[in-house]
Computed example of a mutant assay.
Amino acid sequence: MLFSPRLGWYVRLVVQDMYAHHYEMPRNTLPRGPAYLPHVLTSQKLQRPDQFREALRVTPATFDEMVKELTIDPVFSNNSQNAQLPVETQLAITLYRFGHNGNGASLQQIANWAGVGKGTIDLVTQRVMKAVLSRRFMEKAVPFPTVEEKQKAKAWVQSRSCKAWRDGWCLVDGTLIPLYDKPFWYGESYFDRKSNYSLNIQIVSLPNLQIIDYGFGFTGSTHDSTAWQKT
């Protein structure tokens, strides 16, 4: 069957129009309701710090210190004409996301709470984690104790136990960080004794629970003693 040149021209025109618009059917945007995030960062932060901590899992003072340290990170600055969200907003979204699981941690639920798009949730999470895991921030957030702090820890151990244990001033424990789902690669090795897929994190602290060091990189099935020996 032979096609007329006019029909071929029309087909090309339709295909070009389809590629130009990408969608053949009209798109219905989801109307956004009022965001709850501004209320958390204003009213709850000042008047109800208990509810602020319930939402973001940190105290207002800790939140302000984190914002102060993260603001200077270059990941929160760019040359785009579209300015980023304030650092406190990006940090609040990330903390709220990490503080929830199951249906409460879905992108749509967090987007509704924060009043932003779902793509923005992943974007701000990546920025915050890049800044938090930077060497500068980690050295500031988890410093090794001073000589004075070390002596206080030794005195506490001696007063609460016996003189022979005075030099045992560090406390070490492992904690399991649950994962949302079974990892694709070597997933079985992440299955822990609590029937979850998780990561084994070793925490070193002073008797007053101030964290001074940490070890990571082990799967949930790794025993605490093995993870500690390999730190």
Score class of each variant (00 low, 15 high):
Leu7Tyr: 06
Ala92Asp: 04
Gly220Arg: 00
Ile121His: 02
Tyr180Thr: 12
Ser4Trp: 05
Lys182Arg: 14
Pro34Ile: 13
Pro145Thr: 08
Lys230Ile: 03
Ser106Phe: 06
Glu24Ile: 07
Gly187Met: 09
Leu95Ala: 15
Ile121Ser: 06
Val142Cys: 06
Ala105Arg: 12
Arg6Asn: 09
Tyr190Asn: 08
Lys154Thr: 12
Phe191Gln: 05
His21Val: 05
Leu95Glu: 09
Val142Gly: 00
Asp167Arg: 01
Leu179Asp: 03
Met1Glu: 04
Tyr36Ala: 06
Val124Cys: 02
Gln81Thr: 10
Arg6His: 14
Ile72Pro: 00
Tyr214Met: 04
Asp192Gln: 02
Gly102Pro: 13
Glu69Trp: 07
Tyr190Pro: 13
Ser189Gln: 13
Phe216Asp: 00
Trp185Pro: 00
Leu133Asp: 07
Met129Leu: 15
Pro5Gly: 11
Trp156Thr: 15
Asn79Ile: 01
Pro74Cys: 02
Ser161Phe: 09
Gly174Pro: 09
Arg32Glu: 04
Ala83Lys: 15
Val67Met: 07
Thr42Leu: 12
Tyr19His: 08
Lys150Phe: 02
Leu179Asn: 01
Thr175Trp: 02
Arg166Gln: 10
Leu46Cys: 05
Lys154Ile: 15
Met66Tyr: 10
Phe98Ala: 04
Asp181Ser: 06
Asp181His: 03
Gln126Cys: 11
Ile211Pro: 03
Cys170Lys: 11
Arg193Phe: 03
Leu85Gly: 04
Met25Gln: 13
Pro74Leu: 05
Val75Glu: 06
Cys170Thr: 07
Ala92Met: 05
Val15Ala: 12
Trp169Arg: 07
Val132Cys: 06
Leu37Asp: 03
Leu85Glu: 11
Ser134Asp: 14
Val128Cys: 15
Thr146Gly: 07
Lys230Met: 11
Glu149Lys: 14
Leu37Asn: 03
Tyr180Val: 11
Arg53His: 04
Asn82Gly: 02
Asn28Ile: 15
Gln90Asp: 07
Lys150Tyr: 01
Ser195Val: 07
Val75His: 02
Pro31Asn: 06
Trp185Tyr: 09
Trp185Asn: 01
Val11Trp: 12
Phe191Glu: 13
Lys182Ile: 06
Leu91Pro: 13
Gln109Glu: 11
Arg97Glu: 02
Met66Asn: 08
Glu65Phe: 05
Leu123Val: 00
Lys194Gly: 05
Ser77Leu: 04
Ala20Met: 08
Ile110Cys: 04
Thr146Phe: 10
Trp228Ser: 03
Thr29Ser: 01
Asp224Tyr: 12
Arg32Pro: 01
Ser159Trp: 00
Met138Asn: 11
Met1Val: 05
Glu148Pro: 00
Glu65Pro: 00
Leu7Trp: 06
Ser80Asp: 10
Glu69His: 08
Thr59His: 11
Thr29Asp: 02
Ser80Lys: 10
Leu7Thr: 11
Ile121Thr: 09
Lys194Thr: 10
Ile72Leu: 07
Asn103Leu: 15
Val75Lys: 04
Ala114Ile: 00
Pro26Glu: 10
Val128Trp: 13
Met129His: 10
Pro34Thr: 13
Thr231Met: 15
Glu54Pro: 00
Asn78Pro: 00
Gln229Cys: 02
Tyr36Met: 10
Asn208Glu: 03
Ala61Arg: 15
Asp64Asn: 14
Gln44Pro: 00
Asp181Ala: 07
Trp165Lys: 05
Phe218Asp: 03
Pro86Trp: 12
Asp181Ile: 07
Ser205Ala: 15
Tyr186Phe: 05
His21Asp: 02
Val204Ala: 14
Leu13Trp: 13
Asp181Gly: 01
Lys230Pro: 00
Gln210Asp: 09
Gly220Ala: 02
Glu65Ala: 13
Asp173Cys: 08
